[in-house]
Write a protein that binds this DNA or RNA. Structure first.
Lengths: 361, 361
DNA sequence: TTGTAAGCGTTATCAA
DNA sequence: TTGATAACGCTTACAA
């Protein structure tokens, strides 16, 4: 029932190999032959059986993107960027959600959930540095984020420490001294929370402001709800606060909500800055300043690295950090009304390691 | 180099057929045999070559979800729900973005972009009723949304007219008479904008309130930015307004921004209600009332229908409308602080048509 | 309960 | 520039 190359070949009076050549754009095909084949393809409505080609070539032209969940704006926008970047190079993207569950994240690395794709972009959230060994996988893998460093896989990450330092420094520049943090993870050494907190501490140290643990609010999950709760706790604790650094934008949105509830003027009484620069922060009242970690570049870089690995490159493992920017808006008094102002730029970097990739299995 | 069933069979001392039986969970395998095979699989690190199986079975276990863009919260949340629903039944989801471009949407229907998947969930935005013929495709297809009705494909849509009527009626119940609309599309007959506007008009008629075209604000793209612009235009036009029905939540967020800018009290001076019930509206100040169109049920239903079509069902084409709810929050004065109240429920329905599906090609 | 053998529709090799 | 033919790794009749 389905039309095969065989059928096309027959109608065009050529061999299947020639049809294959035409379909794949092989240049050395006589023009008249090509036209006959194309006519036959159109006439019969032939469509390539991609499974057969995949079996033969051992490639599928697809990659997997594993994220916690698309409901989180950061990951939705990341997925958007990844799909665009992949599409430009002719790749398709299969998306899986781990729900930030440890078990599912381990399954990603075990390859259990990698159905048909040539490689995996993985943004873990539950795994940590202790799970480093699990990242020695036998398929092309690029890691996103800051849960794990030093894995035997290319890694695209943010300029967390520097960006957090610049964000905090920006608050200090506007005269703030009592700067609260929303979203810390106690005891964490690496991970977005720990790194951003480290940047915060450095900025304080640079300015000679003592670190006050009472200003640091914990929040396990980085959602809007936890941001609102944590902000509420900090405000109700009676600690004097004149600025807030929310470690991501979802929590900044929640914090804004909690601040509004208490009729606190922003930025008059308290200034607010977030991290991620998701679309939402441009439409709140006031608009929220944030750190733009270079999402498009992260996506593009990650896809490039993965495609190169799929292509069999044996370059040493690399860690890439795109440029980041602190974007000032109303919540830090940088602009009035809409609009924004880039108040700091943290240049990215490329780190070549001397670690070779495992031979692809 | 790669381990094949052959290799496993050899080590276990059985035939490939037996290995296949074990891998596929075929029940009539002697326990001791099964164990030997499993030991061999573990020992050799065997993984099924999915391309080969796909070639043989003519199935890939994947479906495509085509949406305008994941950066739009509604579609991000829809994608989340679709991936979950598909995953529960063992299906994977490949996501493609059309950017709401007509050309790309036509390519979806032409099957040009359907690489390896068994069927397509398609949420068009650029195509319209005039493109009905393009929906006669030779692959399993389920249409989402309200751009096109009567296509030869199962269709999952919202209870637009009734839900919009209920949302408007709710505003009227709270004493509003000058209710503006944000997001109309002039000249549209079907499509989300036209249907929701029709519901709005019916509610006005039900209450004996004359329709005033000056209250209807156009907005081409349903983004936050256009919502803010349109709201601004309506407010600046000098038309008296005591309530706003934004035809989706993105525009409601933008409208909220514009209202805040002009220091208008919500819901004191103007009440606001949106449509979609995305996560964002729970964290704005005030929280925004909205219409919950039953996103999870839409996703689940759509996946079920598609899987049934892939399975070759010849049931007549169906149109399914899940239950919808009007959720009251602060912006319509239904609650104070967080929390919400369901103020109306519109029961869904299943419409069986007498149209048979095209034989799958 | 297990084995044998014939494809599934492509691409790769080698020859013409 | 084109053609014949052998894989690719799996499932599925059909046999045993």
């Amino acid at each position: 029932m389905p039309v095969r190359m065989q059928d096309v070949a027959q109608r065009a009076g050529v061999s299947v190999k020639t049809v294959s050549n035409v379909v794949n754009g092989y240049p050395h095909v006589r023009e008249s032959t090509r036209r006959r084949v194309e006519e036959a393809i159109d006439h019969l409505g032939y469509r390539m059986n991609v499974s057969a080609r995949n079996l033969r070539t051992r490639r599928t032209g697809m990659i997997t993107l594993n994220v916690p969940e698309l409901s989180l704006p950061y990951f939705a926008e990341l997925a958007d960027s990844v799909i665009r970047a992949a599409d430009e190079q002719g790749w398709s993207v299969l998306i899986e959600q781990t729900g930030a569950e440890r078990q599912r994240e381990l399954e990603v690395l075990a390859g259990r959930r990698r159905h048909l794709t040539d490689g995996v972009l993985f943004s873990p959230l539950a795994l940590g540095q202790d799970d480093l060994d699990h990242f020695d996988v036998d398929f092309p893998l690029v890691v996103l984020g800051e849960r794990v460093f030093g894995a035997r896989a290319d890694h695209v990450t943010m300029n967390n420490v520097e960006a957090a330092r610049a964000a905090t420094a920006h608050l200090i520049t506007t005269g703030r001294r009592r700067i609260a943090v929303v979203g810390a993870h106690a005891g964490e050494v690496i991970g977005s929370a720990a790194l951003r907190l480290a940047g915060y501490e450095r900025a304080l140290a640079d300015a000679g402001i003592p670190f006050d643990p009472a200003l640091v609010g914990e929040a396990g999950l980085w959602h809007r709800a936890t941001g609102a709760e944590t902000m509420g706790r900090l405000l109700d604790s009676g600690t004097g606060i004149d600025a807030v650094f929310a470690l991501n934008d979802a929590m900044a949105l929640g914090a804004l909500h909690a601040l509004h509830e208490r009729r606190i003027d922003i930025p008059g009484d308290i200034a607010l800055i977030g991290f991620d620069d998701v679309d939402d922060v441009r439409y709140t009242v006031p608009t929220i300043s944030s750190v733009d970690p270079g999402r498009d570049e992260i996506a593009r870089t990650a896809v490039d690295l993965l495609v190169a690995r799929i292509g069999g490159t044996t370059e040493p493992i690399r860690r890439i950090v795109p440029d980041a920017r602190v974007v000032g808006r109303e919540s830090t008094g940088d602009v009035r009304g809409d609009g924004e102002r880039v108040v700091a730029v943290m240049p990215g970097r490329v780190e070549d390691t001397d670690v070779s990739p495992l031979p692809a299995g």
